[in-house]
């Protein structure tokens, strides 16, 4: 299968196979007018199979969202068909409106306008807790 290389844009690589749609939705790539390619189940020496997303336009990628979903993802910035920057992801200290608090007793359940903010409380176990009620992100 042939997919054109991109001139100016972003390649999100090393996505765990099957996770690309989740990332597509979180990054709201449906709102872009440019060409977006979701490539599933690509053979990978390192991962066996992986997904790749190519966005044929310059854009600001929310690295916190990607870092939360999977810090092993790589983000490549392409300019004039040349890889000009490889961004490394880390677990973000805080995520906003990426996941919703599921605790029925949390204030966010009655006050719909509040942002859903989670803080990293344990990097080893990748535990995030709601800043309001301290429930774990699920």
């Amino acid at each position: 299968m042939h997919i054109d290389s991109i001139k100016n844009g972003v390649v999100i690589d090393h996505i765990k196979a099957g996770k690309s749609m989740e990332i597509y939705n979180h990054l709201e790539l449906d709102k872009l007018d440019c060409t977006v390619a979701i490539i599933k189940n690509v053979s990978s020496k390192k991962m066996g199979r992986k997904d790749i997303i190519k966005v044929d336009s310059e854009m600001e990628v929310d690295l916190d969202v990607l870092g939360y979903i999977d810090p092993d993802i790589t983000v490549n910035i392409i300019k004039n068909e040349v890889l000009c920057e490889k961004k490394k992801l880390t677990l973000p200290n805080q995520i906003k409106d990426v996941v919703k608090c599921k605790n029925p007793r949390c204030i966010t359940t009655t006050e719909q306008d509040l942002p859903h903010i989670f803080k990293l409380t344990n990097a080893e176990t990748k535990t995030y807790r709601c800043i309001y009620c301290e429930s774990k992100a699920k």
Binding site: N103, R105, C106, I107, T108, T109, T110, E111, L114, C130, I131, Y132, C133, E134
Partner: peptide, 27 residues
């Protein structure tokens, strides 16, 4: 005091005076 967990934190983010949490649900 508020039955919802985190309500006093929300109040403290908006208020211009100190907030004391007098109990937020089971939290």
């Amino acid at each position: 005091r508020h039955p919802k967990e985190g309500a006093p934190l929300v109040a403290s983010m908006a208020a211009s005076v100190p907030i004391i949490n007098a109990g937020d649900g089971g939290h």
